[in-house]
């Protein structure tokens, strides 16, 4: 099973390879062959193919439907128009959806982190009995298809009156995300230097104090990666918010956008604008957290 060492979580990705290669790199830089240029060209073409859909969405979101009808999808807008965007913005009351998504994702990220830290403290540092099975249990919770929990959860939250309430989604994702967090943090805490813990307990610190004053601050880099991941994963969730947040005013951004597809009032540029508004928030996170994210994505897979 892939386990994650804390060092790998902290180390940054350096795409140029190992540092001590710089000399060789310089030596080679001059002998680029024709083949090398072809491979570069191929890599750039792949990049363009991946980016073209974004480009098309961006240019067409700023067209009027008439402009689209005459000029088609590929032409630069004849005139920058915010029609599509404003139409969609007002139709779904976009700020409200944005707020729902931010609220749900933020609360989930923090709650799930707290639960993960508590679990991982017991498993990784406390080495409680049967910890392997406990970790497997948490991992299972993360691997399960949400459909297998969907109807009973729907029934449960309906009977306690939390159906169609953002808190239902918050509670569910706190558990699902913390299951992954427990798995990851337990292995990180499993390698936590014992000397530090012993020194702290010699100073008379209680276990509770050690956790919040020693362990959490030291593992902050890992925790911040987790926090960002929990936020984005929750933001991107679909099935459970779709099922639980039925009324318009509770919906999250992806649900609001998806549920209007195929609507009669959605003309071609409004649909494009809906996709644009859906991708802008995640694009912003990506730009802000790019470094942390690349660290985290790779940390998850590195042994």
């Amino acid at each position: 099973m892939a386990t994650i060492a804390p060092q790998s979580v902290r180390s940054t990705v350096d795409p140029t390879g190992k540092r001590d290669n710089t000399f060789k790199v310089r030596k080679r830089k001059s002998n680029r062959t024709v083949g090398d240029w072809f491979i570069l060209l191929a890599a750039i073409i792949v990049g363009l193919l991946i980016v073209v859909p974004f480009y098309l969405i961006i240019i067409n979101s700023f067209k009027t439907a008439g402009d689209y009808a005459t000029g088609g999808a590929l032409q630069w807008p004849a005139q920058i128009s915010f029609d599509g965007i404003t139409k969609f913005w007002n139709r779904v009351n976009f700020p409200e959806k944005l707020w729902n998504s931010i609220l749900i994702s933020t609360v989930v990220a923090f709650l799930a982190m707290i639960v993960s830290v508590l679990n991982a403290y017991a498993i990784g540092i406390g080495r409680v009995k049967g910890r392997t099975w406990i970790v497997v249990l948490f991992l299972l919770a993360n691997v399960l298809p949400q459909e297998a929990l969907l109807y009973p959860l729907y029934f449960m939250f309906k009977s306690i009156g939390l159906y169609d309430n953002v808190w239902s989604v918050i509670i569910i994702f706190t558990v699902i995300q913390s299951a992954f967090g427990t798995y990851l943090l337990s292995s990180v805490y499993g390698t936590f230097p014992k000397e530090i813990l012993e020194a702290a307990s010699l100073d008379g610190a209680s276990r509770w104090t050690i956790l919040w004053r020693v362990i959490v601050p030291i593992s902050r880099p890992t925790l911040s990666v987790l926090l960002i991941f929990f936020f984005i994963w929750t933001w991107n969730e679909f099935l459970i918010p779709l099922t639980f947040l039925v009324s318009n005013s509770n919906q999250t951004v992806p649900i609001a956008i998806a549920s209007l597809q195929g609507d009669r009032l959605m003309d071609v540029t409004t649909t494009s604008a809906s996709a644009l508004l859906g991708l802008i928030p995640t694009l912003i996170f990506f730009l802000i957290f790019q470094r942390t994210l690349t660290r985290g994505i790779t940390a998850g897979a590195v042994k």
Binding site: A73, I232, V253, I257, A275, F285
Partner: peptide
Amino acid sequence: ILPVAVGAIVIGWI
């Protein structure tokens, strides 16, 4: 980085 549903809409639009 996109929510999968939004990613699907992007390609669906094309």
